[in-house]
């Protein structure tokens, strides 16, 4: 694993130098939370959640946004960019192992995501008195699982996208429906019936829903939802291994 930490640290620093990455993963979710918490005082009727302020309701959505943005912009965009500019090829002709490379990129992305989530928690705590009634351990565990799922999906997109441009198109095409249909703020129950199963199959939905259950201290009897994440990890993993190219 020689080179693991230097590579991870270097990628993390490069993420901080990338305005797209900083805006979408650090600033945008925080702005989204603040904006919604200030404008609306309570959830859209039909959410079925009661007892906490609106900022607490929004927190899981903000965290989901950080996970989505950091992995979608961090992984496929970086991967296709490095492939097109032959950075991957240059790294490949050094003795660094493929596994080391993959792990170091993952670590830097995870750390970046964690920074984004901390920004949300700090803002939420200081200005909006957000609360989490359920277990913090479960909360962190679900976040971690969500990050792994989205790292896998990001790698899969980066591997099948034929170019940097194509990766951009794919990502922005998925991005909006993902935000609208994953229960970040719109309850699935109020969506048209035909779209509900699709929304439930989206990878962001279970992350968001379970996190929200934990925030409200609702008993976690819907753990089958984690199966959706496992399914996504397996599919994305297979696509990555099958389609990954160095150049």
């Amino acid at each position: 694993m020689r080179g693991l930490w230097p590579l991870a640290w270097s990628e993390f620093r490069l993420n901080l130098r990338d305005p797209m990455m900083v805006f979408w993963s650090l600033a945008f979710p925080a702005l989204w939370l603040v904006f919604n918490a200030v404008i609306f005082s309570e959830p859209i009727p039909g959410s079925g959640y009661e007892g906490l302020n609106h900022a607490s309701f929004l927190l899981p959505g903000g965290i989901s946004l950080v996970i989505l943005c950091a992995s979608f912009i961090g992984v496929p965009i970086t991967l296709t960019n490095y492939r097109e500019k032959a950075v991957l090829k240059r790294l490949r002709v050094t003795p660094v192992k493929t596994a080391t490379l993959a792990l170091s990129f993952s670590i830097s992305n995870v750390v970046f995501t964690v920074v984004g989530i901390l920004v949300l928690l700090i803002i939420g705590r200081i200005f909006f008195d957000i609360q989490v009634l359920g277990s913090w351990v479960a909360f962190i565990g679900v976040i971690f699982l969500g990050m792994v799922t989205f790292l896998a999906i990001g790698s899969a997109i980066g591997s099948i996208a034929p170019s940097f441009r194509a990766a951009n198109i794919i990502i922005w095409t998925i991005f909006t429906p993902m935000i609208m249909l994953s229960e970040l703020f719109l309850p699935i129950a109020i969506l048209p019936a035909w779209i509900q199963p699709i929304a439930r199959a989206f990878p962001l939905t279970p992350i968001n829903t379970i996190l929200r259950d934990i925030v409200y201290g609702v008993p976690l009897d819907d753990l089958w939802r984690l199966g959706v994440l496992a399914g996504w990890i397996v599919i994305a993993g297979i696509i990555t291994v099958r389609f990954f190219r160095w150049e």
Binding site: A86, V87, K89
Partner: peptide
């Protein structure tokens, strides 16, 4: 790869 030095035709490293 430990022992050789390489400059590729399209040389590039991380842009930033």
């Amino acid at each position: 790869r430990e022992k050789i030095g390489v400059q590729l035709q399209t040389t590039s490293i991380q842009p930033n």
